[in-house]
Nucleic acid binder design. Structure first.
Lengths: 196, 196
DNA sequence: TACAGTAGAGAACGATGGTTCTCCATGCAA
DNA sequence: TTGCATGGAGAACCATCGTTCTCTACTGTA
């Protein structure tokens, strides 16, 4: 088997298992069994479980970025692009295996014990904050709007995970719409969104 | 040692250790050593580690409820009482050992493996939602406002934990203020809060 | 066929976990 | 003093974990 293939199989298997059951609840043996890659090879590719966790987080970051990019691609105006973030969340929350934000979960589980993991999570969240700030600038919104929208997105992820209610995304979207309308100072023409 | 005293010592010790390092990273031996209560006695009080975790969550719920009640006690108008929730968060985020919401952390770590823990976390979050809904009703706000404010509070907790920035609470408060003013339909007289 | 090198299966190893058990000191009733 | 119940300290037990090692099968080459 190709090295790149083996790497990809291990990472995507570990991603699924870690996300579903938690990192510490999944042994390397389970990763081997489900990926079909031998322990020897896994440890050749990743020096330790911690490194595998970091690789999984990188993998998640790429999928997250691609998902967001895809959601934004269909949106026209800057304001629609901001709201598209919440539509993306809505679709994600409805997936069968949705179990909250992997970064938040991993941070809660390992953040106190592994500086590298904590740093990776921090960087992913900071990157999302920068992205939203950029979207806000494009929409002509004030600087304080971006962190507020980010809080809604983060809160929606944990609340949807714990309550199991995908409708959480709609609450977040409605709140975001209100904040955006207030910040942009107009009454909000577009696309039939009122409070829900 | 009194049974109630032993129980209290074990729970508060486990609470501190679990919160700081994560549940699975703390052995029962550490709980014994730091609480000064023997393993035999601990297992007499709590049949398993899972039961201890549940007791810790109950303990956290009581402290959370007391903290919120204390914060609300100093607030006058219903609108101030809503915003007082975010002032309470601000104080909490500034504590040295703040590491996010214990319920969210535990849910991420054990929610997939222990139904009882998942249920306890769900119940705590549902209880908070009901409380905020009650405050919104007292303020004369519409039903949809409460879940929006809850999302801000939840998002603030995870964001403050990961970023380490206590100022997160101010963003949440400002957003909440905006949502409240929009929902109540007036321009917002009170207590010098503008966007931040 | 003989050989070298690679990789997989899975045993082995040392550490640690949750839980239970043994043994001993203490205090109190008779 | 004797006997007995209580509870503490910590060893013991069994499972599991992350990691490494051994042995074997296989591949390609001369």
């Amino acid at each position: 088997m190709d090295e790149a293939t083996a790497r990809e199989r291990v990472v995507s298997t570990a991603d699924r298992l870690f996300y579903t059951r938690g990192v510490q609840a999944v042994g390397m043996d389970a990763v081997r069994t489900e990926s079909g890659v031998s322990l020897k090879r896994i440890y050749g590719l990743f020096p330790s479980k911690d490194d595998l966790v970091l690789a999984v987080l990188r993998h998640r970051t790429e999928r997250w970025n691609a998902g967001i990019a895809g959601a934004l691609a269909g949106a026209g105006t800057p304001r629609e692009r901001l709201l598209a973030v919440f539509d993306f969340l809505a679709g994600w929350f409805r997936e069968d295996d949705f179990r909250g934000c992997a970064f938040i979960n991993v941070f809660g589980e390992l953040g106190g014990g592994s500086d590298r993991v904590a740093e990776a999570v921090r960087e992913q969240k900071a990157s999302f904050r920068r992205h939203v700030a950029e979207l806000v600038r494009e929409a002509g919104g004030p600087d304080h709007l971006a962190p507020q929208l980010v809080l809604l997105a983060e809160g929606a992820q944990t609340t949807a995970a714990i309550s199991g209610d995908p409708g959480t995304a709609a609450h977040a979207r409605a709140a975001a719409d209100t904040l955006i309308r207030c910040a942009l100072g107009d009454a909000g023409d577009a696309e039939g969104t009122t409070e829900a």
